[in-house]
Simulated scan of single mutants.
Amino acid sequence: MAGGQEVTAWRPRVPGVTEVFHAHFTEYAYPMHVHDAWTLLIVDDGAVRYDLDRHEHGTPLDTVSLLPPHVPHNGSPATPDGFRKRVVYLDASRLGDDLIGPAVDAPDLRDPLLRRRVGQLHSALARPGDELEAESRLALVAERLRGHLRERERERAVRRPQRRDEHELAGRLRELLDARVVDGVVLEEAGRVLHAHPAHLVRAFSAAYGIAPHQYLMSRRVGRARRLLLDGLPPGEVAPVTGFYDQAHLTRHFRKWVGVTPGRYRSSAR
Rank of each mutant, 00 (worst) to 15 (best):
V34F: 02
W38H: 02
L61P: 01
A170K: 09
A196T: 05
E151P: 03
L125G: 00
L228C: 01
T59V: 04
V104I: 12
Q247K: 13
Q120Y: 03
L177E: 13
G236P: 05
R266M: 13
Y216Q: 01
A190L: 08
D231Q: 14
T261I: 05
R224E: 09
S219M: 06
A179V: 04
A92I: 10
M218D: 15
V17P: 04
G263S: 13
T18R: 11
R127P: 00
A204W: 15
V7P: 01
E168K: 03
M218Q: 15
Y30V: 14
V238F: 07
L233H: 08
G236F: 04
S267T: 14
E237M: 00
T8R: 03
L201S: 14
G191V: 11
P213Q: 12
V241H: 10
V71Q: 15
L194Q: 09
L40M: 02
I100M: 04
L230R: 04
Y28L: 04
Y50C: 11
L177N: 03
L217I: 14
E6L: 05
D36W: 01
E135K: 06
A269M: 03
T242C: 14
Y30T: 07
L187N: 11
S76V: 08
A142Q: 08
A106W: 06
A225W: 02
A142N: 03
D91H: 09
L173E: 15
H195V: 12
K256A: 06
R84A: 01
S76Q: 13
R86F: 04
L66G: 12
G263L: 07
P31W: 06
F83H: 14
L99G: 11
G58M: 05
D44R: 10
V64F: 12
A239K: 07
H253M: 05
D62A: 08
A23F: 01
T79K: 10
A207H: 13
R266D: 10
V222Q: 14
A269S: 14
W38A: 09
A23E: 08
D51V: 09
V17F: 00
P31D: 13
E6N: 09
A212W: 08
H200D: 14
S267Q: 14
P198F: 00
T63I: 10
A23S: 09
G263Y: 09
D165W: 13
K256G: 05
Y245Q: 10
P240G: 08
G75Y: 02
H70G: 13
E175L: 11
G3C: 04
I42Y: 02
G171N: 11
T18S: 06
G16S: 08
H195C: 08
S268C: 02
R226S: 15
P240Y: 11
R137E: 03
L229P: 01
V48M: 14
S267A: 15
V182M: 04
V186K: 06
V20R: 00
W10F: 02
D178W: 06
L66H: 13
A142D: 14
G232K: 08
H249A: 12
A207S: 14
V186E: 13
S268T: 02
P77C: 06
H33I: 02
V20N: 01
H167R: 10
E131A: 05
V43M: 05
R159K: 04
H73S: 05
H55R: 15
R192V: 12
D105P: 01
G129L: 00
R115P: 04
H33W: 04
L229M: 12
A239H: 00
